[in-house]
Amino acid sequence: MKTMTFWGREDTDERLLVECMSGLKTATCTPKVWMEEEEMSYVGDLFEVYTKLGELACLIEITEVYEIPFGDIKGEVGEKIAKGENSTLDEYIKDHIFTWEQPLNEQGYGFGKDTRIIVEHFRLVESYIDYRGIPAYEPRD
């Protein structure tokens, strides 16, 4: 079975996992250049989702997958992606520029409106732990 751990700004940042398990987050996306062929997902794929400490948290099922240029995240499609990411469209765009721009540039891929991303929509199938017991994210000083 495929596995994943949601990204966080720090190694203690489990906000995206908590949002997934509480039903607020129903989509995730990744720059295509960061995905190996065997990591590509398809409708119906199941993923075990782990905490950053390696504890199995939940099981999700992929319900929709598509590839889109980052610059095309606008209008109805952009709103759908942002809603799935539990964010507004402006927040989504700003957050993902913050998250992806520097590492993609450092790795020599570059980042811009033509950067291809893979969008995966999902549904929560089963929870193995109580998300309310996951420690809240606290930024480090």
Rank of each mutant, 00 (worst) to 15 (best):
M1R: 04
T3G: 05
M4R: 06
M4D: 08
T5G: 08
T5V: 14
F6R: 03
E10K: 10
D11R: 12
D11V: 08
T12V: 12
E14F: 06
E14P: 04
R15D: 10
R15E: 13
L16T: 07
L16F: 14
V18M: 15
V18Q: 15
E19Y: 13
G23T: 11
G23M: 13
K25E: 11
A27Y: 04
T28Q: 07
C29E: 11
C29G: 10
T30G: 03
E36I: 02
E38Q: 11
E38G: 04
E38T: 07
E39N: 13
M40P: 00
M40D: 09
S41H: 03
S41L: 15
S41N: 09
G44K: 04
L46S: 06
L46T: 08
Y50M: 04
T51K: 03
T51W: 01
T51P: 03
K52F: 00
G54V: 03
G54I: 06
L56E: 08
L56A: 04
L56T: 01
A57W: 00
L59A: 01
I62V: 15
T63G: 01
T63W: 00
T63N: 02
V65W: 01
V65D: 01
V65C: 08
E67D: 14
I68E: 06
P69W: 02
P69Q: 10
P69N: 09
P69T: 06
D72S: 13
I73K: 08
I73G: 08
E76F: 02
E76L: 10
V77E: 15
G78D: 05
E79W: 00
E79L: 12
A82K: 09
K83V: 09
G84A: 10
N86T: 05
S87D: 13
T88H: 06
T88L: 10
D90F: 05
I93F: 11
I93A: 09
K94H: 10
K94R: 15
D95I: 04
D95Q: 11
I97C: 09
I97P: 08
F98S: 14
W100Q: 10
P103D: 13
P103T: 10
E106N: 15
E106Y: 05
Q107R: 14
Q107W: 07
G108H: 07
Y109P: 05
G112I: 09
K113W: 02
K113Q: 13
T115Q: 07
R116V: 12
R116S: 11
I117K: 01
I117E: 10
I117C: 05
I118R: 05
V119C: 08
V119K: 08
V119Y: 03
H121L: 09
H121P: 00
H121A: 12
F122R: 02
L124D: 02
L124V: 02
L124G: 01
V125T: 05
E126G: 01
E126I: 01
S127T: 14
S127F: 00
Y128A: 02
I129N: 03
I129Y: 01
I129W: 00
D130I: 03
Y131C: 04
Y131Q: 05
R132D: 03
R132H: 12
R132Q: 13
G133V: 00
I134A: 02
P135T: 04
Y137G: 05
Y137R: 07
E138L: 12
P139K: 11
D141F: 03
D141M: 07
D141T: 05
